[in-house]
Simulated scan of single mutants.
Amino acid sequence: MSGRRVVDRGSFGRNANLPNALTLLRILLVPVFAWLLLADGGDDTSLRWWAAVVFVVAAATDRLDGWLARRQGSVTTFGIVADPIADKALTGAGFVGLSLLGILPWWVTAVVLVREVGVTVLRAVVIRHTVVPASRGGKLKTVLQTVALALLVAPLPELLRYAGWAVMVAAVVVTVVTGVQYAVAILGAARRHRAEVRTRAREAAERRRR
C-alpha cells in the first residue's frame, strides 16, 4: 500500500466515502443482477439485457472505486475487506447463474469458485505476517472473466456468443494458472516466514546462553 494512507476510525459512518459507497453499491447490485438473469428461466430477452447492463455497471464500479481510492491517497478497513468480497460475489453470481440456466457447464463454475475461495483462504491464513499483492495475471483474469460473463449473459447473436465462449476459455486457463501461481507464492512466503521465526528464536536462545 505504498503511497496510501489507511483510514480506520472505528465506524462505517466515519469510513464513508465515495469509493466505499461504490463498493457497497456493487454488493447491493449482486442480487438485482442475479434476479434479472434467472427470472423466467432466463428466457426473457429484455430481462437478460437488463441483467447484462447491471453486471457491466457493477463491474465498472470496481475500476472506479479503486481509481478514486488511489487518487485520494487513502483506503479504509471497510474498503479493504468489502472490495474483494464484492468482486467475487458479482462474478460468482454470474458463473452460478449461467450454470443454473444450462449455459455454462458446472465444472467451469466449480473450477473458478474453488480457485477464488482457495486463494482467499490462503491469503487469510498468512495475512498476519505477509501480503501477496495482486499480480498482472490476476488482473488479467478479472478482466477476462468480466468480459466473458458479460458476453454470455447478454442475449447476443450466435456469432458474438462464440466470441464469449472464446474469452471464457481464456479466462478459465488464466484463472487456473494464476491460482497455481498465487498458491506457490503464498505458501513460499509462509515457509520463509516460519524459517525467519525459527532463525530469530535460535538467535535469541544463543544470546540468552551467553
Rank of each mutant, 00 (worst) to 15 (best):
V54E: 09
R48S: 06
Y182P: 02
R202A: 07
A154P: 08
D44F: 05
L160M: 13
I186E: 07
A190V: 01
V121H: 08
W35H: 11
A205W: 14
V111D: 00
T77Q: 14
D83P: 10
V147R: 05
I103K: 11
K88W: 11
L38P: 10
P133E: 10
Q145P: 01
L36N: 04
P157I: 05
V121Y: 12
A52R: 05
A205F: 12
S2T: 14
R191N: 08
A189K: 14
R71T: 08
V126L: 12
I80E: 15
L149N: 00
V131P: 04
V112N: 02
A185W: 08
V125I: 15
A58T: 07
P133W: 10
P84F: 10
A154H: 07
L100I: 03
A82S: 13
V167P: 01
R123W: 09
P19G: 08
E206G: 01
P84R: 09
T109V: 06
L149A: 01
V126C: 08
A154I: 11
R208D: 06
V153A: 01
L98Y: 09
I80S: 12
R5G: 00
T61R: 09
G102D: 04
A201R: 15
Y182K: 04
T199Q: 15
T130G: 00
V131R: 13
A34F: 14
V197N: 10
L156F: 07
T199P: 00
V108F: 05
G66T: 09
A52S: 09
V153T: 07
Q145A: 03
D43F: 03
F33T: 05
T91A: 03
Q145C: 01
V147D: 03
A150H: 09
V111S: 01
T77C: 01
T175K: 05
V57M: 12
D62R: 05
R209I: 02
A51H: 11
P157M: 11
R191F: 10
T120K: 01
Q145E: 12
P19R: 10
V119I: 14
V143H: 08
I103S: 06
A51Q: 04
P105A: 04
F33M: 07
V30C: 05
A89I: 06
L47Y: 04
L160E: 10
R9E: 15
G13D: 11
T76K: 12
A205S: 14
V172I: 13
P105L: 02
R128N: 10
A154R: 09
K88I: 02
A190E: 15
L28R: 11
